[in-house]
Simulated assay, not measured.
Amino acid sequence: MNETKAHLQRYLQDGRDALLWKLDGLSEYDVRRPMTATGTNLLGLVKHVAACESAYFGATFGRPFDGPAWLTEEYEDNADMWATPDETRADIVGLYKAVTAHSDVTIATNDLDTLGRVPHWSPDRAETSLHRVLVHMIVDTQRHAGHADILRETIDGAVGLQVDRDNMPGGDPDWWRDYRDRLEHAAREADARARRAG
């Protein structure tokens, strides 16, 4: 594997790992509960990224992924953004791992300039390279890993970039409380100044 492809795949894998890590230690309710007005939830993010990868590294390069009907057929809006009561956490995580293994074969057996076709992209850019699809999926996966990070912090306060490297300052709970209070004070002061000036 060439160096550029290896770097891209590492960034993709970092995002994949972060998404799955955010599920660790939570109840079935907590991984599924809608945390925003649009229903964003942790297990739904994993299911959604599995759906995206299955298409982008599957059918795009002539290697369709053989998965559940909701992956390949018409389905209701946002069906990939939440898990039904009949879909277990193990089902969704297992599906994601199977999809990523399938994707990794596509990545390993093609050059970065290999062309594929993304049917739902506009005709002027539907034909695209593996390189572009890799960048697209890195951005999408890391974006959703960021969503998952915020959701997890909201659920139980757990934060961090990776299991073995959280990338956070080493403050204790009192330090974090003081830090947050400073930010709250700064936000209120800035708002008050803007109101006086306006």
Rank of each mutant, 00 (worst) to 15 (best):
T72F: 02
R10Q: 13
R188T: 10
G44W: 03
R152F: 07
V118R: 14
R182C: 07
A101F: 13
G67N: 06
N78P: 03
T60Y: 05
G39I: 03
E127L: 10
W176V: 02
M81H: 11
G58W: 07
T109V: 14
E28H: 08
P173T: 04
Q142K: 02
E3L: 06
A98E: 06
L19E: 06
D113K: 13
T38K: 04
D124G: 14
Q9P: 14
G39R: 07
F57K: 01
N2Y: 01
A126H: 09
R132C: 08
A90F: 07
A108G: 10
R33S: 09
P119N: 13
T109P: 13
D164A: 10
D66S: 09
V163Q: 13
D80G: 13
Q142V: 09
H185L: 05
A98I: 05
A101C: 12
H7K: 12
H102M: 05
W70S: 06
L134W: 06
V46E: 06
P64I: 04
K97C: 15
H120R: 15
R195C: 05
D164W: 10
E87R: 11
T109N: 15
G116W: 00
T141Q: 08
P173Q: 07
V31E: 03
K97Q: 15
D156S: 01
D166N: 02
P34N: 09
G94V: 03
E3D: 13
V31R: 00
G116C: 01
A192Q: 14
L95K: 00
R16C: 09
N167M: 00
K47Y: 05
V99C: 11
W70I: 13
V105F: 09
L19T: 05
E87L: 10
H48N: 04
I155A: 01
A59H: 11
Y29H: 15
M35A: 15
D30N: 10
L42G: 03
V135N: 12
D181C: 00
D113H: 12
S27F: 08
D66Y: 00
D80I: 02
T72I: 05
R16E: 14
R180G: 02
V163T: 07
V46P: 04
G116F: 04
S103E: 11
